[in-house]
């Protein structure tokens, strides 16, 4: 197992270098550097501009800046934000729990709804329910996130007034951050009204962010179940006189879960990408919103560090999925 993990980790190094290089170049291709963006229409004297650029190290050759950056990152130093002058790492870590909370809720939502929907669609293949699930998931998968989010806000928040429009918590509440997960922190503080408020704020972003993974999980579960249900060992299970629930929920599902778990793992990337849009729509104070702001301010270190750290978490999740895959599928267990 250790050997397997080490191999996987070593394969990740080129990925990291590529990601770092791309973000580094792309953000610098955008017109306007951090100083110009900040001065805006007022403009700045050329001498002062040159002076500030020199201070920030922006006047050095690009390859020089890049190598410096990589060297610092290798030492665990993600640099300081050009705007707030806080450590990029600590800013990221403060905001990340908000994103994680949203992403986990979205994944939970997608799995809890998508898995049963997919199973039922497969079992009732060709039925109205099956066609309904498949149609809905295709729609969900094809829907642009920002449009879907605005639609839900318009309907549920503005129209019906059932859910708050944006943010994580009503302003009347204050909860001392501890784990960074609002649901947990409010419960820990024993403030149930705040908990309800946090939950209410989570509903729409969770649905918006969870829609694409939900569609993918439902479709994948259905097709995996259909394949598995035709297998000989399902016939064996029925020949043992097992009830349908046990045949489907255990003998079939256990095998169908193998591809589904892989897909769920792959969705984590989509989820964090989707979080950027979702957080912006709902003013969710997570890393997604922070990254967008960093782009707008040309906050090079914050953006580079943020993207790199998100990439790290995606890779970690995928590694976790690979390990879990071995647990689910005895045929490819890595440790012998």
């Amino acid at each position: 197992m250790l050997r397997f993990i080490l191999t996987r980790v070593s394969l990740v190094i080129p990925t990291f270098l590529g990601i770092t290089f791309l973000t580094f170049i792309l953000i610098r291709l955008v017109p306007g550097d951090p100083i110009e963006v900040r001065t805006g229409e007022r403009g700045i004297a050329p001498e002062r501009l040159a002076e500030l650029r020199h201070e920030m190290g922006l006047d050095r050759p690009l390859w020089h800046q890049f190598l410096d950056y990589v060297g610092n990152v290798l030492h665990g130093d993600f640099g300081l934000s050009l705007i707030t002058h806080n450590s990029v790492l600590s800013e990221f870590l403060t905001l990340f729990p908000a994103t994680l909370e949203l992403a986990l809720c979205a994944m939970l939502f997608a799995t809890l709804v998508g898995l049963p929907a997919g199973i039922l669609a497969a079992v009732k293949r060709g039925s109205l329910f099956d066609h309904g699930v498949m149609g809905a998931s295709l729609t969900g998968y094809s829907m642009p996130i920002f449009w879907w989010g605005l639609l839900l806000i318009l309907f549920f928040s503005v129209g019906l007034g059932w859910t708050p429009v944006s943010g994580r918590l009503d302003l009347v509440y204050y909860v001392e951050p501890d784990t960074g997960f609002m649901l947990i922190d409010t419960l820990k503080a024993g403030d149930y009204d705040a908990f309800r408020s946090a939950l209410g704020h989570l509903v729409l972003p969770t649905i918006v962010l969870g829609t694409v993974p939900l569609a993918v999980v439902a479709r994948m579960t259905r097709s995996a179940m259909l394949e598995v249900l035709g297998e000989d060992y399902i016939r064996t299970a029925r020949a043992k006189g097992l009830a349908d629930g046990r045949v489907i929920g255990m003998h079939a599902l256990r095998n169908a879960l193998i591809p589904v778990v892989t897909v769920i793992g792959l969705q984590v990337g989509t989820l964090l990408g989707g979080a950027i849009l979702t957080e912006t729509i709902f003013s969710w104070p997570g890393v997604g919103k922070w990254l967008i702001e960093s782009i707008n301010r040309r906050d090079y270190p914050a953006l580079q560090g943020g993207v790199l750290l998100i990439a790290t978490s995606v890779i970690l999740v995928n590694l976790l999925v690979d390990v879990l895959y071995g647990v689910l599928n005895p045929r490819i267990r890595h440790a012998r």
């Binding site: 297998e231 000989d232 060992y233 016939r235 003998h251 256990r254 095998n255 689910l328 005895p330």
Partner: peptide
């Protein structure tokens, strides 16, 4: 080979 469930 295929009549037994591979996961159990």
């Amino acid at each position: 080979m295929t009549s037994l469930n591979p996961c159990f």
